[in-house]
């Protein structure tokens, strides 16, 4: 019984996660400039990934694997924050140098 509930919940979380991912990709595709795209995709992807990790964690239960999942998620958050920052810096700089020209 509990297993069924867990399966249902994690399935739902997976779908929600996928929704955010797809939304992020759509944004990447449709949005006009780097900063807008960045804005959309950093948020949507991290959120989507969070839901998916949560879904997997429900399946895994209390184990070492769960710890690994959490570490993976934290590392990804850490990395994506910086990547977003670097890309934004670059785009900002490009804009400025274009204006000068």
């Amino acid at each position: 019984m509990i297993q069924i509930i867990i399966n249902l919940v994690s399935g739902g979380l997976l779908i929600v996660g996928l929704f955010f991912f797809i939304a992020g990709i759509l944004a990447l595709w449709r949005f006009p400039d780097t900063l807008c795209r960045l804005h959309a995709i950093t948020k949507a992807d991290n959120l989507g990934l969070g839901f998916i990790i949560f879904a997997v964690a429900l399946q895994v239960g209390w184990s070492v694997l769960l710890l690994k999942l959490i570490v993976v998620y934290l590392l990804i958050l850490y990395a994506s924050a910086l990547n977003g920052y670097l890309i934004a810096q670059y785009a900002h700089h490009q804009d400025k140098s274009n204006e000068v020209k």
Binding site: L75, Y78, L82, Y85, L86
Partner: peptide
Amino acid sequence: YDRMLRSYARGIVPF
């Protein structure tokens, strides 16, 4: 060189 990047490296390289 970017300070952000440096502090990031400081955190992630040990991992």
